[in-house]
Every structure is written in C-alpha cells, then in structure tokens.
Design a protein around this nucleic acid. Structure first.
Length: 493
RNA sequence: GGCGCCGUGCCCAAGUGGUUAAGGGAAGGGUCUGCAAAACCCUCAUUCAGCAGUUCGAAUCUGCUCGGCGCCUCCA
C-alpha cells in the first residue's frame, strides 16, 4: 500500500494541508463536546461525526489515535452582552424549565442528558474516544491554570471574578480574525462591565455563592468560565501541544480563540497544530429551530422508524465543510443504501454460488476500498468515499450467488468499509437484543396476522393474503417475504 | 460594517484547467417473483445561474450581475 497523505482543511492557515503528528504515527486529537442541558440534536452530531471520521481514517492508515472529547456538565452563560460576564447559566435555566419532570437537582439533569447523549453517540455507530472527561471533574486543573495565568500577568481578579486580559496576548484573534482592534470596532451593542480592563476580556472564574454548582477557590465560592475547561482538559490528557482540535464553526470564536489564548500564554507553546471546524447544517432549507418545526434529535428520527445508521449516513453524505441541507428525503435515500449493505452481509453469511475464478472480483473490491480511503484522505471527501463503497456493494450484489472464496473477499471489503465509514454494519450475533414491541392491529398482534396470511397463502387464497397485506400496510407496517419467512418493518413517514 | 460559503440533470450531490461531467434518489423499460419487497440489467446533463475576459483548452481561473446561505462573544 502506497503511503498516503491525510489532508484536512486547517482553519488557522486557511488551506487544505497535510495532517501531521508531532509523534510519528500517533494522532493526539481533541474535540469540543456538548453542554448537556438538553437532548443533543442532529446538528450537534453533524459536527461530531467528522471527528469520528478523522479517527477512523487515521486508524485505517495504521496510526495510533488518542482521542479526547469532553462533556460540559457545568453550564456556561446564556447572555452574551459582555464576554461571559452576565446572563443565566444554561443548565440552571434548563433545570427550572424542566423541574418536576425528571430532575430533583442540577446534577441529576446533567447525568440524565449525559446518558442520553452517550446513547445517541453509540446509536450513530461513533467510535468511542479514549477519554471523555467532564468539566466538573476537572475543576482543580482549571483553578490551577487560572492561578498561573494571574501569576504570569495574563489574568486579573475583580470583584466579580477572574478575567483573561486579551491585551496581554498579542496573538489574540489569530484563529478567527477577530483581533483586538476589530473587536473594538464591533458594531454590536455591548454593555461594558466596569470591572474589566476591556470588554473583550473573558472570564476564567466567576464568583457566585448562589450558583447551583459551585466550588471553593482562591477567589472564594464560584464556578469556572466556559473556555478554561477545554484548555485544562486537553492539556491534562494530551499534553501541551496537540495535533488536531475540532468543533462546530460557532466554536471558532470566541471559544477556540480563548482556548488558544489561555493555553499558549500558559505553556508558551503552540496549543494545536491543526484546527477543523464543521459547518452548521440546515434542515429542509432553513436554519434548524424548534419554532419552525424542523428540529430533530437522533431519538426523534429513530422513533419515527429510521435506522440510526441511515441517520449517520445522511449526516455524513456531504463533506463537512460544505453547506449541508438535511432533508427527510435524503434520510430515506440513505436508508435504502444502508439496507443495501445489509443485503451484502446476508449474502456473505450464506454463500451459495458455484466456485470460479475470483481474481477480478478481488481486484475490483481492493481497488474500490483503496479509492474510498483516498477520498477520505482528501479532506474527508465523504461523498466520493461513500460512492466507492456503494460501487463495491453493487459489485458484490451483482454476483448472483457468492461462492465461499468470493464471500470471504466480500467480507473483508465490507469489514474494511465499515471500519472506515461506519455505514456498512456487520450484523451482530443474533440481532441486537431489545425485541421491538409487536404492534397490535385490530386487536391482534402483527404476528397473528402474519400467520393468518401464511395460511391463506398455503391455501392459495391470494385475495385473502393480499387483504391482510393491505390492512397491515394501512396500519403503517410493511410485510416482507423471504425464504426464511415473513418479517415486518415500520413504514417510514 | 467585517469574514466566509454555495448556485452542476426532476431531487440530493462529487468534480476546482485537458480522455466518455462520479455516486445516490425519483422516473420509464426489462429479468425474477402468486402479489409485494429485495436484487440485477437498460434508459435518463454536448452541459455546469447569467454575461464578459484569460487560455491551445474552463463547470473549474479573473471581473461583473443575479440568486441562496453561514458566522461575527447562547448555539455543534
């Protein structure tokens, strides 16, 4: 296999460039995770999925990967008048609006939504990171870092908290282009906080002895600022300089800008050598919003009968740097293609064909996998990578019956493609457990209808069997006959 | 006001200087099947928003026009 170069767009240098690792063959990668104040929505996962694809691609290249992605379980503030200076804590707000539903306190709320997030993550077949640190478990490191920044003259204490002095960092603004001069010219209305040296200064620590989550610090009771958690956790697990840092495009400023300022003034070394940002998605051509009714969580879509892998497929079908319009039609298209991979696996598990020369078959599949990996190395060109994988699926399905040699070749292809893209699911042993509840139609479970239809078919009473099919169909389910019997699936809305 | 993205067949979409403009969906035809589904085969852009220019050569580069969108201290 020729040595491949893994290229990714780098926000800092504004160009596609090779992803290099400080330690040869070992990628150290940090991804900003969600604040767990509600269910994560498909937009959250649209931005996490490319990180998963970076990890998969790096592994396919034979690299070792250490991937850290955090969970922000202490809320940052809702008001943006002045950098982190005011507003309401997002998690406290969520607790108040949802109090009495499930949660007795804010820690329960964080725990509940953390678990929901982890379930969605796993449903979408995302790679497990090596560490998934939580902000509340690293407050000590955040305090230590804040103290050091005060000592170095990069931060100062006021009656309301500790702030980072952006004037002490000449490079502030290098990622987003929001340099200190430009920030002064910002046209937005801002409320000046007299406690701060300049409005662009952001909080490292907020003094607040009323906050629902508070810790004791050298500055009294309070809680850490939003940006400092990622600096502290990235350093704790990956060291002073990491190879790659990713997040949604909104993270670029202020979050990542502030992380860079904190980390680089603290260590005196580069924080991350490569920056990746994912564009926000739209839904049915509009910004996703609860108000417009186009707001989806992963569990919403699964509830509606969509395959979680189809959701994954749809969300990665367009490269991460392009505007992406998520549509239900696109999701249906995705579902059909995921089914196609499933059909490939069925045939691989049950080879029936006569043996013959399989060398061309092998050569084609090896080439297609290689082209798929090439595409991923070109700034994660998932459109092309998926197209190559699908060509492989068609190559497999074209063989009327696979002999054992071809089945083995096909199995290797499907396994490798699944490792790279995660959309060609190797069937787990005897299904995934969790039997789906049988729907009841006109007072009878669907299994009874299937049995009655089978009897009608045996009696050649096709009018009756078709009537049953229609009845089940009207109830929203589809029957599918196969040599092994009849199965049912929920029809998609 | 600043920064940036996009406009390719009925729909989604890859391609960013040079052989036949990927792939998926839909649609039409066919094979198979009691029906349905699945699967396979065939058909489906002389053309890339418009105009002007650079070039031997442009969907790809430059300029302008029209249209859609994102970010700029809540947000993935």
């Amino acid at each position: 296999m020729p040595d491949r170069v893994f290229k990714l767009y780098d926000t800092m240098s504004r160009q596609v460039k090779e992803l290099r690792t400080v330690e040869p063959g070992h990628l150290k990668f940090y991804t900003c995770g969600p604040t767990v104040y509600s269910y994560a929505h498909i937009g959250n996962f649209r931005s996490f999925l490319p990180a998963d694809l970076v990890v998969r691609t790096a592994k396919a290249l034979g690299w070792r990967v250490t991937w850290v992605t955090n969970i922000t379980d202490v809320g940052h503030l809702t008001e943006d008048d002045v950098a982190d200076a005011g507003g309401e804590d997002r998690m406290e707000k969520a607790l108040r609006s949802k109090e009495g539903e499930h949660f007795s306190n804010i820690w329960d709320l964080a725990e509940y939504y953390t678990n929901a997030y982890l379930k969605d993550w796993s449903d979408l077949n995302m790679t497990e990171p090596h560490v998934r640190p939580r902000a509340t478990q690293h407050v000590r490191e955040q305090i230590t870092m804040t103290e050091a920044l005060i000592d170095k003259g990069n931060a100062y204490e006021t009656p309301t908290g500790v702030y980072f002095d952006v004037n002490s960092d000449n490079e502030y603004g290098k990622l987003s282009g929001n340099t200190r001069d430009k920030l002064k010219e910002a046209v937005r209305e801002v409320v000046l906080d007299d406690n701060k040296r300049q409005q662009a200064d952001f909080a490292l620590w907020k003094k607040d002895d009323k906050h629902l989550m508070q810790w004791f610090s050298p500055w009294g009771w309070g809680f850490p600022g939003w940006h400092i958690e990622c600096s502290a956790m990235a350093r704790a697990y990956l060291g002073d300089t990491i190879d790659l840092h990713s997040g949604g495009e909104d993270n670029m400023f202020p979050h990542h800008e502030c992380e860079i300022a904190q980390s680089e003034t603290f260590t005196g070394k580069p924080f991350s050598n490569h920056w990746m940002h994912v564009r926000f998605l739209q839904v049915e051509g509009e910004k996703m919003a609860k108000r417009t009714g186009n707001f989806y969580t992963v569990r919403d879509l699964i509830e509606q009968g969509y395959d979680p892998l189809a959701v994954r497929y749809a969300l990665i079908s367009v490269p991460y740097g392009k505007p992406f319009n998520f549509t239900l039609q696109g999701l249906k298209d995705a579902q059909g293609n995921v089914e196609r991979f499933r059909e490939c696996w069925r045939r691989v598990e049950d080879p029936t064909g006569a043996s013959g020369d399989s060398s061309a078959f092998k050569r084609d599949l090896e080439r297609l996998y290689s082209e798929s990996l090439d595409a991923m190395c070109e700034d994660l060109n998932t459109s092309v990578a998926i197209a190559k994988a699908l060509e492989g699926a068609k190559t497999i399905l074209r063989e009327q019956g696979l002999d054992s040699a071809r089945a083995s070749i096909a199995r290797e292809f499907l396994t490798k493609v699944d490792g790279l893209l995660g959309i060609s699911p190797q069937p787990r042993s005897k299904d995934t457990g969790e039997p789906t509840a049988s729907p009841v139609i006109d007072g009878k479970p669907i299994e009874v209808w299937i049995e009655e239809r089978a009897s009608a078919k045996r009696a050649k009473d096709f009018a009756q069997s078709d009537a049953i099919r229609d009845k089940v169909s009207e109830a929203g389910y589809e029957l599918r006959d196969s040599p092994e019997g009849t199965t049912w699936t929920k029809k998609l809305g």
